[in-house]
Simulated assay, not measured.
Amino acid sequence: MVIVRLRGGLGNQMFQYALGKRISEQLNTPLKLDLTTILRVKKKEGFTYRPYQLHIFNVEESYLINPKTIRFFNKLHLHFIVEIIKGIKLLGKKKVKEKTFTVDDNLINSPLNNALYSGYWQSEKYFSDAEASLRLDFSFKESLSPQATNILEKIQQTNSVCVHMRRGDYVQNNYFVPMSSDYFEKASTYINDHIKDPHFFIFSDEPQWCIDNIKMDANFTVVDFETEKIKYKEDLQLMASCQHFIMSASSFSWWAVWLSGVKNKITIAPKQWFADQSIDVSDLVGSDWIRL
């Protein structure tokens, strides 16, 4: 059995699931998802908690502990019971913890069975061998809403460029780097120099800020719409439908690029991914990406 502990937002959860899927296939053993950390929601200044979000995909949802059980005891403020159950289920299991941001080759060549994997695992090297099955797993369960479908039609009719402006917690978080207007200006100039008649589709967790502040000497649309469906799922599906990409330093951006089936696309990413410039992101970024 392979167990992966999920934490963070959708992009992080996808990286964690992808690692587990590849190891489970390599070792021919079941994959279990540990939701005990991600479902324990508590307020902490400067940190944004995300719920379990992989349910938007056709992933293999098999859990270490049933999510209903975790939520039941958490609601009663009896999280220690969840910890006891988890401790029993993890008896005899090894724990593999991510030590650095760079790829651990031993984990690729000689993964451990009967183990819990705890980390972020943000590199395609960890799961490239399982790409075919992951593309099936990461297919969307539901079709787009009528509102999102209207935007998709426009994306498909133009030389579409996905521009992801991650703001929200990035603006005040000392760990990440919110992208400057200078970065997006340089990136859009690069696209204009290499693509005929591009249309920029701007996606953001703060679309109103983009409407109020973004001015571009090009055709652009700030994607802002109401939907009865899951908004982040709709955004990711639309982003992945674009032909070219201007990324933020975000795993959500990363997966939009990966999910895109377009060949020979231009992908622009920031040179600085984290506030701490000593963090080596060479295993995270694509070899053909343009860094600005």
Rank of each mutant, 00 (worst) to 15 (best):
M1R: 13
M1D: 14
V2R: 05
R7I: 11
R7M: 15
G8S: 14
G9W: 02
G11H: 03
N12Q: 08
M14R: 02
Q16D: 07
L19T: 02
I23T: 12
Q26F: 11
D34H: 07
K44S: 12
F47G: 10
I56Q: 08
S62V: 11
L64W: 00
L64N: 00
I65T: 08
F72E: 02
K75V: 09
I81C: 00
I81W: 00
V82N: 14
E83K: 10
I88D: 08
I88Q: 09
K94W: 07
T100H: 13
F101V: 04
V103P: 03
V103E: 07
D104E: 13
D105G: 09
L107W: 02
N109L: 14
N113G: 14
N113Q: 09
S118V: 11
Y120T: 10
Q122Y: 09
Q122E: 14
E124R: 13
A132G: 15
L134Y: 06
F138A: 05
F138M: 03
E142H: 12
S143M: 11
S145M: 08
S145G: 12
Q147Y: 10
A148M: 00
Q157S: 15
N159K: 02
V161G: 04
C162A: 13
C162W: 01
H164E: 08
R167A: 04
G168L: 09
Q172M: 11
M179T: 08
M179W: 02
S180Q: 10
Y183D: 02
E185H: 14
A187L: 04
A187Y: 02
I191Y: 01
D193K: 13
K196I: 11
K196F: 14
S204A: 06
D205G: 07
D205Q: 09
W209F: 03
N213E: 05
I214A: 09
K215G: 08
V222R: 04
D224K: 10
F225K: 00
E228Y: 13
K229F: 10
K233C: 12
Q237L: 05
Q237H: 10
A240P: 07
C242S: 03
H244T: 02
I246H: 00
I246R: 01
S248R: 00
S251E: 03
W255P: 04
V257G: 07
W258R: 13
W258E: 06
G261Q: 11
I266Q: 08
T267D: 08
W273M: 07
I279H: 02
D280M: 03
D283N: 15
D283F: 12
V285K: 12
W289K: 07
W289G: 03
R291G: 04
